[in-house]
Nucleic acid binder design. Structure first.
Length: 258
DNA sequence: ATGCCGTGGAAACCACGA
């Protein structure tokens, strides 16, 4: 079973690239972030025509997440991260597919830091950590995937010294990510490739992709039940080089069937 | 290395992203 994550940076603006990628790699599940479309403007017909069911939570202009599935429809669990009734941003969607709990997230960017956006990011991470503790306690197989907007370590950024004050790399952000891992989650790509340079995002300008000046910010966290089934993982780096691509590349894992 | 590009939406620019 292949599960993928892809920050599409506008599901309508980059629809041809999304469809081409689905056609070429055919993941069983695809978690999408940054739809940048209101609920009624999700391109359901095109997604269905590509062979996928879809759950999504849109929002006008910003954010928005979706879970696409090929074998059958996913069963929605929640479309809001618990812990703040005032939070209107579409950043979390959770569903069950083949008995696996799949959390699709678009964690806040948080820049500029310090400031209210960074405060919101840290509060969001606190809420997420609270919620993932309950997922750990559930005893079910769980995968948490998406755009974390977290550079976990120096090896995950082309020039770490330039990012020390950035919301993606600040000590508070990395500490919160470490707190998450201490709950028992495994960073799937880092587990399989402990020493390799792996990037999932390249800026649109300064020829970042051509220079491989990237960041690793899209992650797969697995609980023990799924870590035992992890077969392989990778980044579809070539997709970032396509015409009219998102600034992120898709990331995927392959799980052993039960 | 500072949004220099790109998207979406509202208004011929602005917010936002990382």
């Amino acid at each position: 079973m292949r599960i993928a994550t892809y920050n599409v940076n506008g599901v309508n603006g980059h629809l041809p690239v999304l469809l081409q990628w689905l056609h070429e790699t055919s993941p069983d599940v695809a978690c999408l972030q940054e739809l940048k479309a209101p609920q009624e403007r999700f391109p359901l017909d095109a997604i269905n025509a590509a062979g996928y069911h879809a759950l999504w939570h849109g929002q006008k202009s910003w954010n928005g997440i979706a879970i696409l599935s090929k074998g059958g429809p996913a069963t929605e669990i929640r479309r809001i991260l618990p812990g703040d009734d005032q939070d209107e941003q579409s950043r979390y969607l959770e569903a069950t597919i083949n008995n696996i709990v799949i959390g699709c997230l678009y964690l806040p960017n948080g820049n500029p830091a310090p400031g209210p956006k960074f405060d919101y990011k840290l509060r969001w991470m606190d809420r997420f950590i609270q919620h993932t503790a309950t997922l750990q306690a559930s005893g079910k197989p769980v995968v948490l995937t998406g755009d974390y907007n977290v550079i976990p370590d120096e090896q995950d950024v082309y020039k770490p010294e330039r990012w020390v004050d950035d919301a993606l790399f600040r000590p508070e952000t990395r500490a919160a990510f470490q707190h998450l891992l201490k709950q028992g989650w495994t960073d799937a790509l880092r587990k399989l490739y402990p020493d390799e340079t792996i990037y999932t995002y390249w800026d649109y300008f300064r020829n970042a992709y051509q220079r491989n000046a990237g960041l690793r910010i899209d992650h797969f966290l697995l609980n023990d039940k799924l870590e035992k089934r992890l077969l392989s993982a990778g980044v579809d780096k070539n997709v970032r080089g396509w015409e009219k691509s998102s600034d992120h590349a898709p990331v995927w894992i392959e799980l052993k069937e039960e």
